[in-house]
Nucleic acid binder design. Structure first.
Lengths: 335, 335
DNA sequence: TAAACTTCCGAAATCGTTTTCGAACATAAA
DNA sequence: TTTATGTTCGAAAACGATTTCGGAAGTTTA
């Protein structure tokens, strides 16, 4: 392994000179710096990140916390897309990505301990149970953190605009003449709460009275539960003319039930998804849905986290909302 | 930050004693070891991984190389499932996962340099362009590597059994009476080559003569291209009775075309996918497909890599094939 | 010419571990 | 009693970088 020492011997200068030259300190003459850099290249020098971070207390390493209760986890395009985006943004700024988990071998660690042990400069928290004490410990620690789709008091959060999403969906569906709009919503999380609140609010604003019978719960990303909910809705005396699904993938479950009953989308019943995953736009008719900009969310999260790491004194927690876009597919019929 | 020194002062023993006690060396008396461990717990000691790996040259860190040309990358369930599995297997053995990329900040690095810089104890290589010189450099380096779905001479590889997959599909479809079987295959990769070879081979074995007009290429994970290929196939004078798709997701593209033409699956035409992603089993009728065991693949890859890292002297490169399972959905009609 | 700056470089301390080797002591064997 | 053996611990040297501080030139100013 080539170390600083090898270079210094090769160049006939000291250790410190080499280090400084390579790091672009300005108390090194141009000629020396040039000579050192060339030698480094020639010898194939690579800095040792362990040694470096031991001394500097920085690792250029970002943790990501990506666990979820339903364990659909990375299988969900919203998260895998976000991860890709976090990754490439971080890399462009010189940071690597490490997954934070709770158990490292036999040893059980809290998330905080793990992040600390790995020396993460910061952590992106997404798709977890935010009420978990371990998560809270991490957020309250000295390690810079940023959360996605959840707000804590003291750390920056990036939110997909669920208020806007549901508002746009509700308004659009209403504008197409629908008055009996059913909503199948996910389990009780802050995201679900926002979507529901926004739905109720928007309905109220446009003067649509709500029928509690049209509210059904079905866990996210679970087509079977959505199928069940769809059945219940279709069994109602006063059937909905439109069903909003918790996410695009879950919609497939509903779709099956609808088609089983010989109903046609959108002629007999209209449907709307949420997320705007690839699949939704491949289906025929294309699914009307709200596309969450998971890439933008990931990008901003990484950027803000890195800012916070590199300029801690300028840091002010903020809440950043990333709006998505209503994709008007062909699953909502004008009536 | 609590260091060894703090513990040693607290306990009134030396640095080395603390280190040895914490690492379970046996030249420390039970009483001392006990005392030290308690103090460590009480003070909230966490080892500094940078310092540790500086000294030991081990990081307990695994790199994963996950880039692909089509950049569907982690969005593909095959890979996201694999990653999850690699991650949890590695974690159980005390290893973390870091993504390896090529650019760290302004500095362009080769994959090898990156892995070396981060001190990865080993690297899992998947879903990349395996002919890339940078990948080859990494494989040929001193860093333990393991490849997925590609074989190099000197490193262990874990392969999804594409030969078996295509064989099972072909045999099954044949057994259902199909004689004009079209195959839409992915771009020219080693995976595609294997599937094609297996298809041709199986057909030959069962005495089915091949019609080159029934071979179409459409990039993986690209429903539009599959739709195109499907059109061409349906425009043939002698139409296929069954179409094999490169993957489940691409099938959706074909499905649209088929339904546009007023054909019904499986009554008018049979179809088969590949992968066995969640979606495929949600569709109605359920897609007949070959489920690749991406979790098993990830698990074995992580296990073997760790073995290689921890017992380098016992290491012998091997080729491990993970078979999947034919899922008999409802998209292949008996004729 | 002396004083005051600059510019460029190096010695050495330091980060927090692990590990080697020998010391000290106790115990067992001769 | 002497010798050999075992047990338990600590001093000190690494690992490979960064950084502080001061010294030696060379250059400018008074």
């Amino acid at each position: 392994m080539i170390t600083l020492k090898d270079i210094s011997e090769y160049c006939g200068v000291s250790n410190s000179t080499v280090s400084k030259a390579l790091n672009g300190q300005k108390d090194i003459s141009k000629e020396t710096a040039q000579k050192v850099r060339e030698a480094a290249r020639k010898l194939g020098y690579l800095p040792n990140s362990a040694a470096r971070s031991l001394k500097t207390n920085k690792t250029l390493n970002l943790g990501v916390l990506f666990v979820d209760k339903t364990s659909s986890g990375l299988r969900h395009e919203y998260f895998s897309g976000m991860l890709e985006s976090i990754k490439s943004t971080a890399e462009a700024k010189g940071y690597d990505i490490t997954f934070i988990s709770r158990n490292l071998g036999e040893r059980k660690m809290s998330f905080y301990e793990h992040a600390k042990y790995r020396g993460c400069d910061g952590v992106v928290i997404a798709s977890v149970d935010f009420t978990n004490p371990d998560v809270i410990e991490l957020v309250n620690s000295e390690i810079p953190t940023i959360t996605i789709d959840y707000v804590y008091n003291k750390c920056t959060s990036v939110l997909s605009d669920n208020l806007d999403g549901m508002k746009q969906i509700a308004e659009y569906v209403y504008s197409q003449g629908h008055r009996r709009i059913a909503i199948i919503h996910g389990e009780n999380t802050s995201v679900t709460q926002k979507r529901l609140a926004s739905f109720r609010n928007t309905c109220k604003k446009i003067g649509l009275e709500l029928d509690e019978a049209l509210f059904k719960e079905a866990r996210y990303h679970d087509p079977k539960l959505s199928a069940l909910a769809t059945k219940e809705l279709l069994d109602l005396d006063k059937k909905p003319t439109c069903i909003l699904y918790p996410d695009d993938f879950s919609f497939i479950g509903g779709k099956n039930v609808i088609e089983e009953r010989g109903l046609k989308i959108p002629d007999d019943i209209s449907v709307v998804g949420y997320d705007g995953v690839l699949l939704s736009q491949i289906l025929r008719p294309q699914l009307t849905t709200y596309k969450q900009d998971s890439e933008e969310i990931g990008k901003i999260a990484a950027q803000k986290l890195i800012e916070q790491i590199e300029e801690p004194t300028l840091y002010i927690p903020e809440i950043i909302t990333v709006t998505g876009k209503l994709l008007r597919g062909g699953t909502v019929e004008k009536i």
